[in-house]
Each structure stands twice: as structure tokens, then as C-alpha cells.
């Protein structure tokens, strides 16, 4: 645990604000720091800004003010910085977003070849390793729409991991899945956490949070209301709003 409580910060978010063109203020002076190898779980009601926060971390949304630094690289207007951060930060979406015209293997290979400039052979080696890891090497030549939701999400995780990212973001990765498939995806995420991947996970899966998270953050209206270990936040929340929210999702 030494590393996780003392290690250096890999994500430093300082007072970011984000207002959408329609006037919705999704993040208000939002600050957070995440250490290397830490697993951070973000919970909060719908519309509280969880997705917006994740999407700001890899430049999918532009922030209006404040600063984001990832692994020492500031996410500013410089193109090379933005690209570097996109390479170092992997993201897994609720709706998988696999490329339907490419096979599973090609999905996992693509960015390795285009962005990391690997040869097809090298990329395939890495991809097959990762597909083994997520438990579906036999589906390499299949197209995504022939897979179950759980399998698709595992491919999406493998695809993100293929870039060898330093940080992985999960935005409600299991919310679109049938109940019987949630477990298999959570297993993959847990093993990743245990290997020491730095993870920011938006999820209301308490079992996952209790088992592998180092910290749970409860946010509402674009700001952090409460944070602590899973035991603290779930078992003995200090804030009334946290209590109310937890009673609603349980």
C-alpha cells in the first residue's frame, strides 16, 4: 500500500470548470489528484458530471478554465500534448463503441499499427495476448456484432489496453450489460486493478468498489461532496446527501 498512498500523482486536476453551450454547468471548480496505481471509483446521481469529468481527462471535452496534467503532460492547446495524452489514457465506454466493420483482432490491432507504428505481426502478438487475458482469444476473427455484450466490452477493454496506456477510464462500463454478463467484465477490471493499473471508474458496482478501489468519490452538481475509502463512503457516509443517494441506489 505504500506506493498507493505515497506514490507520485499521475492525474492532477485543478479547479476545472465546464459549461456546455446550452448553459448546463457540468463541472464547478472540480479538483482531484490521482496517484499512480490508484483505483478511483466515482459515484453520483445522473447528471452530476461524472462522464464529463472522465471525458475532460482525455480531451473529449474542452474545459473552460482550470488545468489538467496527466503524467506530467499538461492538457493544453498544444497538439502534441493532446495527442500524447490521448495515447496514454485509455477509455472504455458504456456502449462499447467497437468498430463494426473490423474483426475483433483488427479492432485491437488498429491503433497499435496506426498510432504506435507497430508491424502487423507485432500488433497481432500483443492483441492475442490481450484477448487471452480478457478470456476470448477464440473470437479473434469474429465481427463484433456476433458477440454478446459482455464479450464486446471485454474486446473494448483489450483494444484500449493495446495502446499500453498509463491510465484507464471506465464510464459505466457495465451499465449497458445484461446482469449475467456484468460479472465477466468486472472480473477483467478487477484483475487489471490488481496488476496496478491506474484506473478512474465511474460505476455504481459496490462490490467492485469495495474489493479493489482505493478511494471512492461521491459527486453532485459538478463538485465533490465526499470522498474516502469504500468502507467509509458506503458504510458510514458523513454527508447527508451521500446517505440519501446511497439509500436510493441500494
Amino acid at each position: 500500500m505504500y506506493e498507493k498512498t505515497q506514490g507520485e500523482y499521475i492525474i492532477v486536476v485543478d479547479k476545472i470548470n465546464k459549461t456546455f453551450p446550452n448553459g448546463v454547468r457540468a463541472l464547478r471548480d472540480f479538483s482531484i489528484k490521482v496517484r499512480k496505481r490508484e483505483v478511483l471509483v466515482v459515484i453520483g446521481p445522473s447528471g452530476s458530471g461524472k462522464s464529463t469529468f472522465l471525458r475532460c481527462l482525455n480531451g473529449l471535452e474542452e474545459i473552460d478554465s482550470g488545468s489538467i496534467v496527466i503524467d506530467g503532460i499538461p492538457l493544453d492547446q498544444r497538439k502534441e500534448n493532446r495527442l500524447e495524452i490521448r495515447k496514454e489514457v485509455g477509455m472504455v465506454f458504456q456502449s462499447f463503441n467497437l468498430f463494426p466493420h473490423l474483426t475483433v483482432l483488427e479492432n485491437v490491432n488498429l491503433a497499435q499499427m496506426l498510432v504506435r507504428k507497430k508491424s502487423k505481426k507485432e500488433a497481432t502478438e500483443t492483441s492475442m495476448e490481450l484477448l487471452h487475458k480478457v478470456g476470448i482469444p477464440e473470437k479473434a476473427r469474429t465481427f463484433p456484432n456476433h458477440l454478446s455484450g459482455g464479450q464486446q466490452q471485454r474486446v473494448a477493454i483489450a483494444r484500449a489496453l493495446a495502446m499500453k496506456p498509463k491510465v484507464m477510464l471506465f464510464d459505466e462500463a457495465t451499465s449497458a450489460l445484461d446482469p449475467e454478463m456484468i460479472g465477466e467484465v468486472l472480473e477483467v477490471m478487477k484483475s487489471l486493478a490488481k496488476e496496478g493499473m491506474t484506473m478512474v471508474v465511474v460505476s455504481h458496482e459496490m462490490g467492485f468498489a469495495r474489493e479493489v478501489s482505493d478511494r471512492v468519490v461521491f459527486m453532485e452538481d459538478g463538485a465533490i461532496v465526499e470522498e474516502g475509502t469504500a468502507e467509509q463512503v458506503f458504510g458510514n457516509p458523513k454527508q447527508e446527501r451521500t446517505r440519501l443517494f446511497l439509500s436510493q441506489i441500494l
Binding site: L110, V115, A156, M163
Partner: peptide, 10 residues
């Protein structure tokens, strides 16, 4: 599809 490609660094 755009977002997935973006987050992969394409």
C-alpha cells in the same frame, strides 16, 4: 465511433 478513435489516439 469518433470518440473511440479519439481515445485510441487516431
Amino acid at each position: 465511433q469518433w470518440e473511440a478513435a479519439h481515445s485510441l489516439g487516431l
